[in-house]
């Protein structure tokens, strides 16, 4: 499904949605950037609590469909601005990582 559809089905908060037609091909969870770089695949949504600027670089280089931030992960404005510049998608689930992933799985992702 497209990430726009994911937003509609989950009601997760949209922090940045610069590429609403991005196709969600799967999901990946992790907070260690090298681990994510080495194992994440293009088109996945990345579930994380990391909000540092480097999240944007990793997401962009990995060509993720979007970043899904879990409960309590507040991304600073300058990082969101960078995400917008890079044409990325950033959502906020307001759920812990486990529940976030369970929701994604429930939607067939």
């Amino acid at each position: 499904m497209k990430i726009q559809e994911l937003v509609e089905k989950t009601n997760w908060k949209t922090l940045v949605l610069e590429n609403p037609d991005a196709e969600v091909m799967g999901g990946f969870a992790g907070d260690l950037l090298s681990w994510v770089m080495g194992n994440g695949k293009p088109g996945e949504v990345w579930v994380t609590v990391q909000v540092h600027l480097n999240v944007i670089a990793v997401s962009s280089l990995c060509e993720f469909a979007g970043i899904v931030l879990c409960k309590g992960a507040n991304m600073p404005e300058d990082v969101l601005a960078k995400a917008k510049d890079e044409g990325l998608n950033v959502l906020y689930s307001d759920l812990p990582a486990y529940e976030t992933i369970r929701t994604l799985v429930g939607l067939g992702i």
Partner: peptide
């Protein structure tokens, strides 16, 4: 704290 230090950098590069 910024998410670095997984110990996967050089192994990833080689891979």
């Amino acid at each position: 704290e910024m998410g670095f230090g997984a110990g996967m950098g050089l192994p990833n590069i080689r891979k």
